[in-house]
């Protein structure tokens, strides 16, 4: 019986101490982690999309709750005076989800630029989608939301990147998601950006 108590006691104490240490560490790193996510995942894509922004889209970001999910929007005020917004959606590629950040002009409802944020595609093949925007992503620029975001093989308007069809499809799924979200949430976005 004493042995039993000791066993339970030791295990409980170790688990409790471990939980305590971890919760302290968690609270002390929380802010930094959120900063890192913005810095490494979103910032490069946003800087690329809003290269003529006069504001700081990262700082001005706001969130909208949609079907239990918080979506972060990055507003951009561009040099020529037009207003735009960028946000991210995901689609399944060859090695996992591909994150696509899309910048949209709020007046013309046209895509300014699209950039890949995160992916785990094959280096040298699927990864070209992010590393070489001119090869694939540039075709999204200027497209409106009447376009069909599917690859041409599937009857859509997008030319797939040769050798990386599955990755291209993943990006198209993300783009279609952006379209759907934008059409549904546009009034709320405009409201928040006033």
């Amino acid at each position: 019986m004493r042995e039993m108590i000791k066993m339970v006691l030791v295990l409980t104490v170790i688990t409790a101490v471990s939980g305590g240490i971890l919760s302290v560490l968690k609270t002390s790193t929380e802010e930094r982690i959120e900063g890192q996510i913005l810095k490494f995942q979103k910032a490069p894509a946003i800087a690329d999309i809003f290269d003529t922004a006069t504001n700081d889209p990262l700082k001005d970001r706001f969130k909208i709750l949609f079907e239990d999910e918080e979506i972060t929007f990055f507003p951009g005020k561009l040099e020529d005076g037009s207003k735009a917004v960028a946000f991210e959606a995901k689609g399944g590629g060859f090695g996992g989800d591909v994150g696509l950040m899309v910048g949209i002009d709020l007046e013309s409802d046209k895509i300014i630029k699209a950039r890949v944020t995160t992916h785990s595609e094959t280096p040298g093949i699927g990864s070209r989608i992010k590393d070489d925007p001119a090869a694939f992503l540039s075709q999204f620029a200027g497209m409106g939301f009447d376009s069909n975001f599917k690859t041409k093989n599937d009857g859509g308007d997008i030319d797939a990147l040769s050798g990386a069809t599955v990755t291209s499809k993943g990006v198209c799924i993300a783009a279609a998601q952006v379209k759907q979200l934008y059409l549904k949430l546009k009034p709320q976005i405009l409201n928040k950006m006033k």
Partner: peptide
């Protein structure tokens, strides 16, 4: 978990 949190914070 400590490694996981530290890597998240410093080598994202």
């Amino acid at each position: 978990t400590i490694v996981e949190l530290l890597m998240q914070a410093y080598t994202y």
